[in-house]
Amino acid sequence: MDAARQIDEHTAQAEVKVSARDVQVYYGATHAIKDVSVDIADKTVTAFIGPSGCGKSTFLRCINRMNDTIDVARIEGDILLDGEDIYDPAVDPVQLRARVGMVFQKPNPFPKSKKKWPPRTTFFLQGARVSQKTAFFHLGNLVEYGDTGQIFTNPQDPRTESYITGRIG
């Protein structure tokens, strides 16, 4: 428990590593990320959760300018890494991506089955529970962001509650 407590204490006083302010992402006419502002702490596991298509990956891709590679994508707002604007023309995206790593989600969890997917269960959220911070996205909005324990026991927004209790998928 001591190790866990040390991590928690660290999280409480951790400095901001990535700071996003009023971030908007458009794919052509589609408004994919709406007005997202969030401070992500240094040396802290932060989980982004939400239904399929809610903007989690799109937002993450902004942090290492992966959306630059998509022609129709347009980004507004500021994203700071250690206080520096990563969209500054002077920043080399290749250098940036060396600092902001990304591991891609592995698809096809049931490779042999061509039938229906099993119903989503709350166990899909198991990964988020080992994080210290959790951010819940829904339809391109950052609905709620806070301590994982708080989000999973007493979420403040009904949308968060519906999602994490398995009432919406």
Binding site: T122, Q126, F152, T153, N154, T160, E161, I164, T165
Partner: peptide, 10 residues
């Protein structure tokens, strides 16, 4: 079996 959260956990 269900790993209840939020209102279900309470």
């Amino acid at each position: 079996l269900r790993a209840p959260t939020a209102v279900d956990l309470r």
